[in-house]
Amino acid sequence: PTAFLDRENVNNVFHVINANKDRTYLIITHDVRDLLLVNDYHLLSMDNHKIDHEFNKKTFENVNRDNSFLHYFAEV
């Protein structure tokens, strides 16, 4: 949802998302900064049509970043 948006408007998008706690949003992103703007999330990663990694916000933010999968999410 944030492709081609400046960071100010990205913040606006996630402000709306966080203000609507009764809704579920499906967000597909490659930008870990987007995840940091969401109050709560559940992250799934797929490989070969199967879920190969699954994290909630707490687990994802506390996991070892040297993990072979997680290094793709290193902050820039």
Rank of each mutant, 00 (worst) to 15 (best):
H15Q: 12
N12D: 06
E54K: 14
L35Q: 11
D40H: 11
D47M: 04
N20Q: 12
T29H: 05
K57P: 01
L5K: 08
N62Q: 11
F55S: 04
A3T: 13
N64H: 10
L43C: 07
L37P: 01
K21H: 11
N11T: 10
T24K: 05
I17D: 00
R7V: 03
N12Q: 13
V10A: 10
D47F: 06
E75G: 07
L43H: 12
S68K: 00
P1S: 13
K57G: 01
K50D: 02
R65T: 03
T29D: 05
H30G: 13
D6A: 12
E61H: 07
N11Q: 08
Y41P: 00
M46V: 05
H49I: 04
I28P: 01
V38G: 04
K21V: 02
L70F: 03
V76A: 07
E8I: 12
I27C: 09
N12C: 05
T59F: 02
L43A: 09
Y72I: 01
N48T: 09
S68F: 00
L26F: 07
D52L: 00
H42G: 00
L35M: 13
V32L: 09
V76P: 12
H42R: 12
F69Q: 02
D31E: 15
L36V: 11
N67C: 05
V13N: 12
N18Y: 01
N64V: 02
V13Y: 08
E8C: 12
L37D: 01
Y72G: 04
H49E: 07
H42Q: 09
I51V: 07
N62F: 02
I28K: 11
L37N: 07
V63Q: 11
H71V: 00
L36R: 14
N9K: 15
N11I: 05
N39E: 10
A3W: 03
H53Q: 14
E61N: 10
L43F: 06
E75T: 11
V63N: 08
V38C: 15
S68D: 07
T59M: 10
M46A: 13
F60T: 14
N11K: 14
L44H: 03
V13M: 12
H53A: 03
F60C: 14
V76D: 06
N56W: 03
K57C: 02
V76H: 11
D47K: 14
Y72Q: 11
F14I: 07
V63F: 02
V13G: 04
F55L: 01
A74K: 14
R23N: 08
D47A: 14
D6N: 15
N9R: 15
E61V: 06
P1N: 07
D52N: 15
D52K: 12
D6G: 10
I17S: 02
E8D: 15
Y41A: 07
D22I: 02
F14C: 05
K58F: 01
L44P: 05
E75K: 14
H30D: 03
S68N: 11
K57F: 00
H42M: 05
R23L: 04
V10M: 09
D34G: 13
A19C: 13
E8R: 14
A74T: 08
D31M: 07
K57Y: 03
V32I: 06
